[in-house]
Nucleic acid binder design. Structure first.
Lengths: 225, 225
DNA sequence: AATTGTTTTATACGTTTGTTTAAAACAAAC
DNA sequence: GTTTGTTTTAAACAAACGTATAAAACAATT
């Protein structure tokens, strides 16, 4: 158990400043993303981080805490970008267009997953695993990280589509999320869509994904009820 | 290892005819869906099925084979329904509408997940877990079960949208899949969307989900390139 | 140089894991 | 009723798991 006085992790802010705890967290994220939470052992993480297994207990306590921190570390910075992009289009005197709002969600998400440096690029996989592992402690951190985003974007969509019902906007937000999330997994799943389409879909190209997603989702958002 | 002469599993067709192997498979599916492949032990499955742990080895060999059979048993019958629904709308003399094709995908999928009897109702979770667990033997069975569906539906979409590019249709098929898949998980994730929308979205209602999905996806499919 | 607080290490504990073995129980055929 | 083939069982295997312990190494302060 970590010392109660001045927990080392809480004080450090940037995990890329390679202290032992930062190395552990980065290794955990990379290995989790590649193979899954339950499929990676703390020993493997420690080895990958050039650290001792006991150092994980020292800095993070139990494995559950490490998983929570990993989810947080990947999603939180992306949320900052999404909310910043959203504010940029909603702060204007004119109400935003549907495409503006959709872009504020899609662009940061796709760029992080495909071109992101560091832990950002593991967003899609970590998100998927967070949805897959159905345990209370995961639900907690997932809700903590994603609830605000849903509400903020639905509000912005309501400004862009004043005649749409609130219910429709919640449904369609979820469809947007699902479509975006799923296409971003193609890269890590052996480019299944690219293979099936005989190369017609370049699922490594952030620009292509963004273009196609925005066209599809924007039209879907505008659909009649 | 099972006897090589006349393997017991291969000869039985309906897993609900409660032989020991059928009970094991059903228990495995239910437990896997609830908690994940790696998080459920063969001992738990055996106990839930009122069987001996060794019976799993006897009928299925290794745990990997049991996982493969579980994925197959859940997805295969649903694929039959989807292809039947698709054939019904493409067999006519007139080309199908976009909505026809979308409905042929959405309706069987949603009904299976929400109103399905037996193992069908675990479709969304098993599908998610199949995508989450990135191992060669899982990729194999997932491809085996889903590749034909992609190709068939993209072909049908091409008939409904003769002016759309093939590339667009592949992209949008994937978006359709992602949106459908994700909304079906809300039920098993504590009704997160329903909670955030303060009850405006009834994610237990197959009719509501189908209606909203079809409106959104059909509009997305028709979007200009 | 000695002291204090923090970090890292080697080692071990008790469980649980997937799988195997060989014997027992059962069923069917003659 | 004995034989033959199949199914089920109890018991055990080695390996891997998460975590704890206590000593060593290190760093900072006086």
């Amino acid at each position: 158990m970590p010392k109660l006085s001045s927990p080392p992790t809480a004080s450090r802010r940037d995990p890329s400043e390679t202290g032992t705890d930062g190395r552990i967290l980065e290794s955990a994220i990379a290995l989790f993303a590649a193979r899954g939470f339950g499929e990676v052992s703390v020993r493997e993480i420690a080895e990958h981080a050039n650290a001792n297994p006991a150092a994980i207990s020292y800095y993070f306590g139990a494995k559950e805490q490490l998983i929570k921190q990993a989810i947080r570390a990947v999603i939180a910075p992306l949320n900052v970008k999404r909310l910043a992009a959203l504010e940029k289009v909603t702060a204007a005197s004119q109400p935003p267009t549907v495409e503006d709002v959709v872009r504020a969600m899609v662009e940061p998400t796709v760029h992080a997953s495909l071109n992101g440096a560091g832990t950002e690029k593991h967003y899609a996989r970590i998100m998927l695993l967070g949805f897959a592992l159905r345990q209370p402690f995961v639900d907690e951190v997932m809700a903590e990280q994603t609830d605000i985003i849903v509400v903020s974007f639905v509000e912005a969509l309501a400004k862009a589509l004043p005649n749409a019902s609130r219910a429709s906007l919640f449904w369609r937000y979820d469809f947007m999320h699902g479509a975006t999330q799923h296409i971003l997994l193609d890269q890590t799943r052996g480019h299944r869509l690219r293979r099936l389409s005989a190369g017609l879909t370049d699922t490594d190209s952030a620009e292509a994904i963004i273009r196609e997603l925005i066209a599809f989702i924007t039209a879907g958002m505008k659909a009649a009820a």
